[in-house]
Amino acid sequence: GLPPGWRKIHDAAGTYYWHVPSGSTQWQRPTW
């Protein structure tokens, strides 16, 4: 699974990851 606080988001551009507490997003899968 993903580290705490991360969500996987799907949209028209593809899949990305959202860090809910900080509001940051990234294309790379977050690592622990």
Rank of each mutant, 00 (worst) to 15 (best):
G1H: 13
K8G: 05
T15Y: 09
T31S: 11
T15Q: 07
G1S: 12
K8W: 10
T15S: 10
Q28Y: 08
W18R: 07
L2W: 04
Y17H: 05
V20P: 05
K8I: 15
L2N: 01
W6F: 02
G1P: 13
W6E: 00
A12D: 12
Y16E: 06
V20E: 15
Q26N: 05
H10V: 14
W27I: 15
Y16G: 07
P3N: 00
A13I: 11
T15I: 13
G14N: 05
G1R: 13
W18D: 05
T15G: 08
S22L: 03
S22E: 01
R29N: 13
G23H: 04
R29F: 13
R7W: 07
W32A: 10
Y16M: 07
H19A: 01
K8M: 14
R29I: 14
W32P: 08
T25R: 13
R29V: 13
P4D: 07
H10K: 12
S24I: 15
P21I: 10
W27M: 15
Q26I: 05
I9V: 13
G5D: 06
W18I: 15
Q28F: 08
G23Y: 03
R7H: 12
G23T: 01
R7T: 13
Q26F: 04
T25K: 15
W18E: 15
G23D: 06
S24K: 15
S22V: 02
P4M: 03
I9P: 00
D11H: 09
Q28L: 09
W32F: 13
H19S: 03
S24E: 14
T15M: 08
L2S: 03
G1Q: 13
D11P: 00
D11S: 15
T25F: 14
P3I: 01
S24T: 15
D11N: 11
G1I: 11
V20A: 11
K8F: 09
D11M: 09
A12N: 10
A12P: 10
A12M: 09
T15V: 12
V20K: 06
P3K: 02
G14F: 06
G14R: 06
P3Q: 02
S22G: 02
S22P: 03
L2I: 05
W27Q: 14
G1Y: 11
S24R: 15
A12Y: 08
G1M: 12
P3D: 01
R7I: 15
W32E: 09
Y17T: 00
Q26A: 05
I9K: 06
A12I: 10
K8L: 12
R7G: 02
Q26M: 07
H10A: 12
G5T: 01
L2P: 06
W32V: 11
W6Y: 01
Q28R: 08
A12F: 08
Y16A: 04
T31F: 07
D11I: 11
Y17K: 00
W6M: 01
H10P: 06
P30D: 02
T31Q: 11
W18V: 15
Y17R: 00
W27T: 15
L2Y: 04
A12K: 12
S22N: 02
R7M: 13
W18G: 03
T15L: 08
W18H: 10
L2Q: 07
Y17P: 03
I9N: 01
P4A: 05
G1D: 13
G5Q: 02
L2D: 14
G14M: 04
H10M: 13
G1L: 14
Y17M: 00
Q26P: 01
G5M: 02
G5I: 00
H10I: 14
G14V: 07
V20W: 13
H19M: 03
P30T: 01
G14A: 05
W6Q: 02
T15N: 09
R7Q: 10
P3V: 01
G23P: 00
G14L: 07
R7A: 09
T31W: 06
H19T: 01
K8E: 15
W6H: 01
H10Q: 12
L2G: 00
A13E: 12
G23V: 01
W27V: 15
G23N: 09
P30I: 00
W27G: 09
G14D: 06
Y17V: 01
S22W: 04
P30G: 04
Q28H: 12
P21V: 11
V20I: 11
P3F: 04
G23Q: 05
Q28A: 10
I9S: 03
S24F: 14
G23I: 01
T31R: 07
P3L: 03
Q28P: 08
G14I: 07
D11Q: 06
W6L: 00
Y16Q: 04
A12G: 12
Y16I: 08
I9Y: 06
W18F: 14
T25N: 06
Y17E: 01
A13V: 10
T31E: 13
Q26H: 05
T25I: 15
Y17A: 00
V20Y: 12
I9M: 13
W27K: 15
T31Y: 09
A13H: 14
Q26D: 05
P4Y: 03
W18Q: 12
T25P: 04
G5F: 03
T15H: 08
R7N: 06
Y16S: 03
Q28K: 07
G5P: 05
Q28G: 09
R7L: 13
V20L: 09
P30V: 00
R29T: 13
P3S: 01
R7F: 09
P21S: 08
D11F: 09
S22M: 02
P30K: 00
A13P: 03
K8T: 11
Y16N: 04
T15D: 14
Y17S: 00
Q28T: 12
H10E: 14
P21M: 06
H19N: 02
G1W: 10
D11T: 15
G14K: 08
A12W: 08
P21Y: 08
Q28M: 08
H10N: 12
I9E: 04
D11E: 06
W32R: 08
G14Y: 08
H10D: 13
S24V: 15
R29D: 09
D11L: 09
G5E: 05
T31N: 09
P4N: 05
P21H: 04
P30E: 03
H19D: 05
I9D: 02
T25Q: 08
P30M: 00
K8N: 03
Q26W: 04
R7V: 15
W18L: 15
H19Y: 06
P30L: 02
K8D: 05
S22A: 02
G1E: 13
A12E: 13
P4T: 03
W6P: 00
W32H: 09
W32Q: 10
P4F: 04
S22H: 03
W18M: 14
W32I: 10
